[in-house]
Simulated assay, not measured.
Amino acid sequence: MPQIKNAHIRYRIIDRCIRNKYKPFPSKEELRAACEEALFGSEDGANICGSTIEKDLFAMREEMDAPIKYSKRHNGYYYEDESFSINDIPLSEEEIESLKFASKTLMQFKDTAMFQQFAFAINKIFDKISTSADLKDETADLVQFETGFASSGNEYLPELLEAIKGKLIVQFQYESFISGIRKLRKTVPLLLKEYRNRWYLIAFDFDKATAITYALERMDELIITDEIFTQPIDFSAAGFFKYSTGITAGNNQIEEVVFRAGTIASKYIQSQPFHSSQRVVKEDETGVVFNLEVLISEELIRDFMSYGGELRILQPESLRKEITTRFKRAVSVYGE
């Protein structure tokens, strides 16, 4: 977290401590401990020192006109004006804009199962910002967020999250889109991941003895068992998705993909790369040649095809043939 944001959070913690009528006159050490516990979950002084609190008190006096005084009698700090609070200080224009964007971002998730327990609080925040004179959003029609429709299976998010935390074994029926066959899966949940408004579970599958990706919308009859899986699982989310361009990942073969994009398409591709490994190999007046090292997946193929004739695969040959076959099939569907 940036230092300036940490400082503002500490100011509010200090303000709350000084205004606490049940424990008045907090000492510098008590203020330090309260800030460290709130920000870092500990009080051992490893992250916040006494000199930091001294600087914070000075900044509050100078920047916020906080009437902070020190009582030698009580060995602690207090407000000379008991009614003072930094909460009464008007927000800056930048802070107001940040609140507006944050509230709209929260509203995108309020109907998601994992966040429904906070829906009331999210609505209160949004309503307050929407109705406050100071926070009235005059740019509401100038900024629009992408809105996704909640898919089935999202109701499993809270249970699966708890299973991941507790390393609990779970079972569920899973239906393949390709075969349409339902099978019972016994897994250890490892990670929940959202991709293009769909939620997925990455879990260690007992039958396949490896990490597998499951779409929550195809899961049914979820059972969270009381059995704790104690054996170590060699899994890293960063490593698992290192060569992925979507949700498909794992230990499949990584290949170098080389492709050429036209002048206009290449600008879009450079501004939003397919993958972090993407590099420019050659550039001229007719376009750009790129390469990247990735797992060739359905998501990647569809992304390539979305550029139509503006993008051409150079290698590997197997990928070039696959995309050629799909375009020929599309031509046959629409007619020549």
Rank of each mutant, 00 (worst) to 15 (best):
K183H: 11
V288F: 05
K186D: 06
R182G: 01
E299M: 06
A209S: 13
I122L: 04
A265V: 12
I14K: 00
T131Y: 07
Y22Q: 09
E63F: 05
E30L: 05
L191T: 09
I313Q: 01
A33R: 15
D88A: 13
S130N: 11
E82P: 13
F235V: 05
I4M: 05
V281G: 01
G76L: 02
E37Q: 15
S71I: 05
N251F: 06
A59Q: 07
G166T: 08
M64Q: 06
L168A: 03
E162C: 07
E175Q: 14
D111M: 11
S103D: 06
K104D: 09
R260T: 07
I18C: 01
I129P: 02
Y77I: 06
S27Q: 02
T263R: 14
S27N: 03
P26Y: 09
R198M: 10
P26F: 03
I164D: 10
R326Q: 14
E146C: 03
E95Y: 01
E175H: 07
Y156S: 04
S152W: 05
P232M: 09
S71K: 05
K5G: 00
K21T: 12
A203W: 01
T139Q: 10
I13M: 04
A163V: 06
E310C: 07
V333D: 03
A330H: 08
I125G: 02
T225G: 05
Y243S: 04
L99N: 04
E298I: 12
W199R: 03
G41M: 11
I129W: 02
S179F: 09
E63L: 12
I228D: 02
S271E: 15
Y22K: 10
A119F: 00
Y243R: 08
Y22A: 09
L39N: 04
L319I: 07
P232L: 13
D111E: 15
F204Y: 15
K193G: 11
K186Q: 14
V289Y: 00
F149Y: 13
A211E: 13
K167F: 04
F109C: 04
I323V: 15
S83K: 08
V170T: 15
E283Y: 01
K128D: 09
F109V: 10
T325V: 06
A238W: 00
R218H: 13
R10Y: 04
L190M: 15
A121W: 00
I129R: 02
P273I: 08
I233Y: 13
G41E: 09
T324Y: 14
R10W: 02
R73Y: 03
S271W: 00
P2H: 13
R326F: 12
K193R: 15
Y11S: 00
F126V: 00
A238G: 02
A133S: 06
R326N: 11
K5E: 06
F290D: 01
I96D: 04
T112G: 02
R196Y: 04
E162W: 12
P90N: 08
Y156A: 05
